[in-house]
């Protein structure tokens, strides 16, 4: 299918982009990697009058370390996240998550910022962003502001990003020594999006007790959420099999699970629990080195 007619803009700076956004408002959509927007346009489910391509805007891509945090430019592709030596060393859960998004073609064009700003309920990265405690740096006409991940995902494909803003970069605060994380997903057989995906980060102290945890659940509901009940079930505890199993039982709490062809509410709740347990088990293994 061909998309409906639209006007194409390729701004060369953030300022120019913001100017266009201010002028065009609702009629414009930002194009990052195009792997969510373009298919919707081709099916004519999205028909923006203006498309603002961010690919010519300098300074939006790249992975760097800044004051202990990992900072990833919004236009960094999934492949760049997957293959970044810095991430593989310092934050392997991000590389792992990126490596199971779509297929190589998707990962070569799709971007981390595009995925997080689009907020597809079945996208992978949102779960990991929640587990890591990401912060979103947005730039608008009034300058930059930072949004914490717990405020970011607001509903089905809705985020805290204002219409006149662009997402510039995502910051991932450093986790203490003794931390490990893993993302486990149950892929949709056709799209490979997450039917259910769970990301878990844990920090273990010298005695093996969990001092900090982050668990994000994606896929099952209308937006990715923090599994607070799971986190509460493991923090302060020694993570033996029974503890993990018990905590994972809370994985579907607070998830507005949606039934579809891939499963009933009950089945998807069950998958949330199974994948929470598996993700925590893998995270603990990594934390122990």
């Amino acid at each position: 299918m061909y998309p409906a007619a639209f006007e194409y803009h390729a701004p060369a700076s953030i300022q120019e982009t913001l100017g266009l956004l201010g002028r065009l408002g609702d009629d414009a959509k930002l194009l990052a990697g195009g792997h969510s927007l373009v298919p919707m346009m081709k099916l004519r489910l999205a028909r923006p009058k203006h498309v603002i391509d961010l690919r010519k805007v300098p300074g939006l891509a790249g992975v760097r370390e800044e004051g202990g945090s990992i900072v990833i430019g919004a236009m960094t592709t999934h492949w760049q996240v997957e293959s970044s030596p810095l991430l593989c060393e310092k934050c392997p859960i991000l590389s792992d998550t990126a490596s199971v998004i779509g297929d190589p073609q998707v990962r070569n064009l799709g971007t981390i910022g595009g995925s997080l700003a689009h907020a597809d309920p079945a996208a992978d990265i949102p779960a990991t962003a929640i587990a890591l405690g990401a912060e979103f740096v947005c730039e608008g006409p009034k300058g930059r502001r930072t949004v914490k991940v717990d405020e970011w995902f607001q509903g089905l494909m809705q985020t805290a990003l204002h219409e006149d803003e662009i997402l510039v970069e995502i910051r991932f605060p450093a986790w203490p020594a003794g931390s490990g994380g893993a993302y486990m997903k149950f892929p949709h057989p056709a799209s490979r999006f997450a039917v259910v995906g769970v990301a878990a980060m844990v920090t273990l102290d010298g005695k093996g007790a969990c001092t900090k945890a982050g668990v994000g659940v994606t896929g099952a509901g209308t937006k990715a959420v923090r599994a607070k009940g799971v986190e509460a079930g493991i923090v302060g505890k020694t993570l033996d099999q029974a503890t993990i199993e018990g905590a994972a039982q809370n994985a579907a709490d607070g998830v507005d699970v949606q039934a579809d062809l891939q499963g009933s509410v009950e089945y998807k709740q069950h998958l949330c629990r199974v994948f929470a347990r598996r993700a925590i088990e893998a995270a603990v293994k990594r934390a122990r080195g």
Binding site: P39, L43, H188, P189, A190, S191, F193, L261
Partner: peptide, 11 residues
């Protein structure tokens, strides 16, 4: 037809 695209129909 609920499975009318390649993202729903699992080849």
């Amino acid at each position: 037809l609920v499975t009318g695209t390649m993202t729903e129909y699992a080849l």
